[in-house]
Write a protein that binds this DNA or RNA. Structure first.
Length: 112
DNA sequence: AGCCTGACCTAGG
DNA sequence: TCCTAGGCCAGGC
């Protein structure tokens, strides 16, 4: 497992319940500004991590659940989010800006 | 080595 | 405003 994954997982683990973030922002924060697709790949592999990685709290830039089909069951991702108080309609997080969690603002710059 | 694939993003028409 | 093409990084074959 390369170091970039470790960093991605580490940041995702910091996302509080009831908040969501997106791939591009995380990629930027871990030092790979154009590596948004890599973050998606990392989420795909996240179940191999020893630590729990709340991959369902990561959505794309417009708040859509683009990764729902990679969860073990239909609408599992949506249910996980709704358990945390987030409203999802048509694979779209409602009030996305309000729930958005930005590592650039919430975490210290030397977190990595 | 080379080509294809993705849980993405941005710019341009 | 919607749609497309291109660029991006790493992995799989």
């Amino acid at each position: 497992m390369s170091d970039i994954y470790t960093r991605i997982f580490k940041v995702v683990q910091e996302i509080p319940a009831g908040r969501v973030s997106n791939y591009g922002t995380i990629a930027k924060f871990v030092g790979s500004p154009r590596g948004s697709r890599l973050v998606g790949w990392a989420m795909n592999k996240s179940h191999t991590s020893e630590e729990y990685v709340p991959a369902h709290r990561v959505v794309n830039r417009i708040g859509m659940l683009s990764g729902k089909h990679h969860f073990p069951g239909e609408d599992i991702m949506q249910q996980l989010l709704e358990n945390e108080g987030i409203v999802v309609i048509d694979d779209q997080v409602q009030d996305f800006e309000k729930h958005f969690w930005d590592p650039m603002k919430e975490l210290p710059e030397d977190f990595i």
